[in-house]
Computed example of a mutant assay.
Amino acid sequence: MRLFYLFLLLLLTSCYQVERNCLDYKTGTYKSTIVIDDVSYVSTFTRTEELQIETFESKTDSASVRWINDCEVVFKTINPKNMAERKDIHLKILTTTDSTYTFEYSYVGETLKQKGVATKIE
């Protein structure tokens, strides 16, 4: 009988798929929230097919956009001012809803990843 319940549980959970309608989030205006060490960081950005313009703590920065596939993108800062800004950022959309997406990002080639949520404003 336990085997039956285990099989039933496995069958039901294997049918569940995380929703990822990444194409809905390729362009638009967003508010992004990231929590690092219990501190919440909020930025706003507008993304087109080729460019992302982001404002964080009253500073605006621009990056070129290169989509790897429907759910993964690489950002390259257009006018880097220091070594950290010269590193490309890889972002992967993990899940989507009708107005938000959860993502993880890291510098290209590094293993430390951070997670955040972006909410579509327009």
Rank of each mutant, 00 (worst) to 15 (best):
L94V: 14
Y5L: 15
I89V: 13
T13K: 13
T111L: 09
F7Y: 07
I53F: 01
D38L: 11
Y105A: 07
V39F: 08
D37F: 10
D98E: 12
T60A: 03
V42A: 11
Y16F: 13
T102F: 07
S62N: 08
T48L: 10
S58W: 06
T96F: 04
F7H: 04
D24H: 12
Y30A: 08
S106G: 03
Q114V: 00
R66A: 13
S32K: 11
V39W: 06
T100D: 14
I93G: 00
N69E: 09
V73W: 02
I93H: 12
N69I: 08
F56T: 04
K87M: 10
N79P: 02
L12P: 02
N21E: 10
S64P: 03
E122W: 02
T46G: 07
C15F: 07
T100A: 07
L94W: 06
R2W: 05
T119D: 04
I121W: 05
V18R: 13
N82R: 12
S99Q: 05
E85A: 10
E85M: 14
N69A: 04
Y41R: 11
F7V: 08
Q114S: 08
V108I: 07
T60D: 03
D38G: 10
C22A: 12
F4H: 07
W67A: 05
I68Y: 00
I78W: 10
Y30K: 11
Q52K: 11
Q52I: 12
N82E: 00
Y107I: 04
W67T: 02
I78E: 08
K92Q: 09
E54S: 05
D61E: 13
K76R: 12
T46N: 14
I34W: 02
L11A: 15
E122C: 00
L51C: 01
V18H: 11
Y25F: 15
V39Y: 09
V65C: 08
Q17M: 11
A118T: 07
